[in-house]
């Protein structure tokens, strides 16, 4: 599948495209496209951060020093996102196998990478909202992008593992629930201990 078709398909015809990608598994191209989206996000975020630093920091030298570290922030963002993608895809593969007896590791890696591409529009909308003084609209668009990305990830899991939507939602949400569990327990412990203060 050509890259243009891949991008168009993920954005406008996700179900059919993920179904095809789950079979073809063009991992290198998918990671390439997603890496470009990550670099784009990092650059836009760096622009926003640099712009806001000027008014937030009291000294120009401090602003300059912080600006000089932008590349490091961008690099860390890209590397961290790639690492997280790899880990979460592995977790989804294991959960698919354990819970429903289906697995498609390479397919999940491919589709999860491409499902993350629309998230790049979030910072772009934020920047446009700031420039055009339409912050509320940009927040709504960013919320829309987040929900869109979430739906794409669930669709990616559904098509890759060939399961129904409810099962895809279960697989998608389990790692987050597992991550939230210590926080919930922590909150309960804190609330319980407040009574003894």
């Amino acid at each position: 599948m050509p890259i243009t078709d891949m991008l168009y398909g993920v954005l406008f015809r996700p179900v059919a495209t993920f179904g095809r990608l789950a079979e073809e598994k063009p991992l290198a191209r998918a990671v390439g496209v997603w890496s470009l989206a990550l670099v784009f996000t990092a650059l836009v975020n760096a622009g926003i951060f640099r712009g806001q630093l000027g008014s937030a920091l009291p000294f120009p030298a401090l602003t300059q020093a912080a600006s000089n570290l932008m590349w490091l922030y961008g690099l860390m963002y890209v590397l961290f996102s790639l690492a997280l993608w790899f880990v979460i895809s592995a977790v989804y593969t294991v959960l698919g196998e354990l819970l429903f007896g289906v697995a498609n590791g390479r397919g999940i890696l491919t589709c999860m990478a491409l499902a993350g591409v629309p998230a790049a529009f979030g910072p772009a909308f934020y920047l446009l909202g700031e420039v055009l003084s339409l912050q509320s609209l940009s927040w709504l668009l960013m919320l829309g992008v987040s929900l869109w990305t979430l739906v794409l990830k669930i669709l990616a899991l559904r098509e890759t593992l060939d399961i129904d939507t409810a099962r895809a939602v279960v697989i998608w949400i389990l790692p987050y629930l597992a991550a939230a569990l210590p926080v919930i327990l922590g909150v309960i412990v804190v609330i319980a201990s407040i009574g003894t203060l």
């Binding site: 784009f40 622009g47 772009a124 920047l127 420039v131």
Partner: peptide, 21 residues
């Protein structure tokens, strides 16, 4: 979509908060 992204990149490179409004 690619042209939009390139436009946003140019904007990000030149933007400062005082431009707003």
């Amino acid at each position: 979509v690619i042209i939009f992204c390139l436009g946003v990149l140019v904007l990000a490179a030149r933007w400062t908060p005082s431009d707003a409004g």
